[in-house]
Design a protein around this nucleic acid. Structure first.
Lengths: 298, 298
DNA sequence: ACATTCATTCCGTATATCGGAATAAGTCAA
DNA sequence: TTGACTTATTCCGATATACGGAATGAATGT
């Protein structure tokens, strides 16, 4: 029924609604009904789309045709993909060198809209827990050292927009007020790295250095995640220096690409914990997660 | 147009054709024309679908609206997903323990159709090259130790089908004839692990132990990739024992799921997708791109 | 056994998709 | 600058496709 400004009746949109639902599930698999409910689709439609997705190899069902889940092939497809300007390949050697020489876990974070996403990771012998955690994990820009390092080195205009947009989201993490955040950012800009134990995760600490493209804008960050004791005042400068050395080597190799500043877009948004935000946007608005049981308009 | 075995006129199929094309590209981005050509779509259609995909957040375009590429969000979506029965989460601790105590790189491979896919990886200080390489990388079942370990412990019927299907593909790697392959498999079954330096990558060696589900079928494998010297006859038994210990601990925790045996079908990336062998030096990193559509070279 | 939930198939309707062709935008060589 | 060329985007009518209500079939539970 008519153009609602943006398309939400398209098959593609519905298909991805299903994919998103499945991605948000725990990987055990979901039944058609459940999927239909959570994606706001009819059972018939959900079923038909699931068949189509299976034909594409995106979805598989295990155990005598009951539960649907995303396929390993889908995983592999996207794994070889989300690699803006070959950044991951570019950084891999650096990650390996760093984790080997430091003995800590190294993260590669890239900016994606208002979030930072963990693109790669190389583990050291010291087990840690981080915000982004796994490869593919997301945090709002500003949460955690790596994320903060990126935010601090965005061009001013974008930085402001991100700050404005993210402030409400950040509240859920620390007791951030705007002044505090800006102070942090200022210090990061001055020092050239994001350090200091934020105390967000007890006993954990991190340092991060931004990776700047040829225009001096942050597109990524290398970050060390470790236990607080291992970032003593004596060791810290060494670590920072190592990180910085790698980042400056990486910078020039970056293929030009810009991350378009978009609202997290009804797209593949934060399946990850508290990162999810619910801001009804003016134009693209609509289509949040549909309240359970709400029928899609026709 | 109508029958034709499976539907290929559907919008969803076309959309994924584009995604596949983009995934196969080197991440620099592609123009509409190129995408249209390689996916076999009309320019108009390709363009429209790209718009739709952008609305979904799957595709972004950089640089003043010229080149399209897959978004980081798409990457994140699938990363948190392709995790059959939580296998990755289940295995992560084991990977960390192993790479920490052995000092070598540990891979988690899962079966996907006629391939093995690298689902996770934990690096040790010893740099290595492997067949699967990156997370998301694929190899035909039978190539490499991990892959071989899985193949060897499939139920007989499936094993036979895989062998039949894969033989031609294997030819490109070693000088495998069927007899040789079957001999290898027999030995793996007898020993309970896949070992021995296959000499496929000079100086490299690996050992792999299958992860069996409660029915005794191989669904995955833990594999060690290292340099040949580090798998001396004295050290090997230790390594195998450590691996085995972890795998038996993992097995029972596997959520029941079966990988349906399907032709790689028009599915994702399929057979000779990113079966790239990493030939890069770990310091200069980089490399890896095969020309789109080119078969993996011998 | 029955009752209930869930999965799958049917089918008429209408809507979203398709692609040829027109237009706009960008690229390159003089 | 101009002009020829390539590539990107928009239009639009025909029709193939997707839609979803409802019927059927398969599981599950008590």
């Amino acid at each position: 029924m008519s153009d609602r400004e943006a398309q939400q009746g398209t098959g593609l949109h519905r298909a991805f609604a299903i994919i998103r639902v499945l991605a948000a599930s725990d990987g055990t698999g979901m039944r058609v009904t459940q999927i239909a409910r959570e994606s706001g689709l009819t059972q018939a439609t959900a079923h038909r789309l699931l068949q189509a997705l299976m034909a594409e190899g995106v979805v598989v069902q295990g155990e005598g045709s009951r539960l649907y889940r995303l396929s390993v092939e889908f995983f592999a497809l996207a794994a070889s993909a989300g690699n803006p300007g070959n950044l991951r390949d570019l950084c891999r050697p650096a990650l390996l060198r760093l984790s080997a020489s430091l003995g800590d876990t190294i993260f590669l974070l890239v900016r994606s809209g208002f979030d930072a996403v963990c693109l790669d990771r190389s583990e050291g012998p010291f087990p840690i827990r981080s915000f982004t955690g796994d490869v593919g994990g997301r945090v709002a820009l500003g949460v955690g050292q790596g994320s903060l390092a990126i935010l601090a080195f965005l061009p001013e205009a974008e930085r402001e927009e991100v700050i404005r947009f993210n402030l409400p989201r950040l509240r859920d993490f620390g007791v951030f007020d705007e002044v505090y955040l800006r102070t942090e950012i200022a210090r990061v800009r001055e020092l050239g790295y994001a350090g200091r134990n934020t105390g967000l995760l007890p006993g954990m600490a991190g340092v991060a250095v931004p990776v700047l493209d040829r225009d001096g804008r942050a597109v990524a960050a290398l970050s060390v995640g470790t236990i607080a004791e291992r970032l003593s005042p004596e060791r810290l400068p060494t670590v920072v220096e190592l990180l910085r050395r790698e980042t400056v080597a990486i910078g020039p190799g970056i293929n030009p690409f810009d991350v378009v500043l978009r609202r997290p877009a009804q797209g593949l948004g934060g399946i990850n914990g508290p990162t999810r935000i619910e801001t009804s946007d003016s134009r693209t608005g609509q289509q949040g997660r549909l309240p359970p049981g709400a029928a899609p308009r026709s």
